[in-house]
Amino acid sequence: MQDERDLVRSAQQHDGDAFAQLYDKYFDKIYRYVAFKVGNRAEAEDMAQQVFLSALQNISSFKWRNIPFSAWLFRIAHNKVVDHLRKKGRRVTVSLEGVQILSASNPQQAAELSLDIEWLKSATAELTAAQRDVITLRFAGDLPIAQVAQIMGKSQGAVKALQHSAIVALRKARLGGENGRP
């Protein structure tokens, strides 16, 4: 297995296998990130594909400069999400209708997850934009804190603090939701 820097270098020289490996490594993460942001499966699928087509078209312009490839890829994804939502006149928000839930293996589990989705939808709407970005990049993008910090242009300490405050806010919203349930 080539390391990522070698893969990117090979992909820049139009090595299809190298780009395919990068695609396989990041597609699900990018899809999750986009789906969480736009909240619609068809749109998320289309945009995730566009992200990789853009990456393919522009990979020769990518330079490491201490920024990992994943950060570059997520920047493309973020820009596409912002453009998409701007065109639709929507603010960046969360609504997971129509998105396939990976872990729901039976109806009961699906119902529980549906409640979780409702909770997460309303809870994330209350987060600040920066808190929402941290949660999305960390949990949907599955990125380590160092990369989230690079993408957001913040220190790791600041991102950890945002992550902490976001989870505290999610917790409060969850408790509120549970107390409010019949």
Partner: peptide, 14 residues
């Protein structure tokens, strides 16, 4: 809370 959030976001493409 983080585990629940991560599980909820655990979505995959068709």
């Amino acid at each position: 809370t983080a585990i629940a959030a991560r599980k909820t976001i655990d979505i995959e493409p068709d």
